[in-house]
Amino acid sequence: MQHGKYRFIVGFLTVPLGLYALFVIWPFIQSIYYSFTDWTGLSPEFRMIGFGNYERMLEDEVFWKSLQHSLLFAVLLPLVTLGLALFFAFMINVGGRRRRGGPVISGVRGSAFYKIVYFFPQVLSIAIVALLFAFAYNPNSGAINSALRAVGLDGVQPLWLGDPDLALWCVMAVLVWSTVGFFVVLFSAGMASIPADLYEAALLDGAGRATTFFKVTLPLLWDTVQSGWVYMGILALGAESFAVVQIMTTGPGGPDYSTTVMVLYVYQKAFRDGQAAYATTIGVALLVVTLAFAAIVMKLGRRERLEY
């Protein structure tokens, strides 16, 4: 049965690879091609202009700002979101006080309830979340400033999205809020598959919560954390950051470009300014950033796989 094995495999792979090439690889190549033209996106005529778009991009202040913000998103968002999610998941699954007659490891009281509550934001689409928070951030009648007033902090009434120093953080907070629940559930699933006897052994040796977390839970969960990292980074560079910035922020793009991100800039150049070729150029830059991000995470995260 050895002969014909490759034909068999190739037979199965042709269709998916063909689709992949047609819908993924080919658009990539096309985009790179268009980045060397002056295509407007509104007429079929265009001509080659060499590296004109790239030269322009390197001198474009707004591009550098959007790159800076995107990189900040890609670094900070996974860090904060995954950190929080790990903490919550640990408390839900492992961090509870030991109760008489109960199992050796358990979550804090009411952990089943928390698990559901953390997952709630996932049920809402990102557009709804962004809209809700846009209302909450309303400096006049929004929930946040009203709450501040209610506790007597009348003097502290920030402009939130209207303040260039705060706007980007406001946007990040929304992204963290809306994605953390997913990772709590994901990490909970991962923790559930860690054998309880490992924890028992650690407890017998007198390990506290922190030690248990860093010496047992985290190493055994590392694979999940790493893929979560890539996933979150891609969200932060791509669709999710676009949605919140586009829906929530001033302009959109923030007061004084304080919240503009690369995906938003691509969109604005292609669909508002009729400069599709330049937009693809920024898109190519975004592709480079994303690939670099994935490569770095993979490289840094490489560890010996633990079998258990």
Binding site: V185, L186, G238, T280
Partner: peptide, 29 residues
């Protein structure tokens, strides 16, 4: 309970779809 392997696959797929937001543009040129 999204499995770990599923997640990797999906994140890879998502990355390839969502990153080049510009690519669908080309389809119309």
């Amino acid at each position: 309970g999204v499995g770990r392997r599923d997640l990797i696959k999906r994140s890879a797929a998502l990355g390839l779809i969502s990153v080049p937001t510009m690519s669908f543009l080309s389809a119309c040129a």
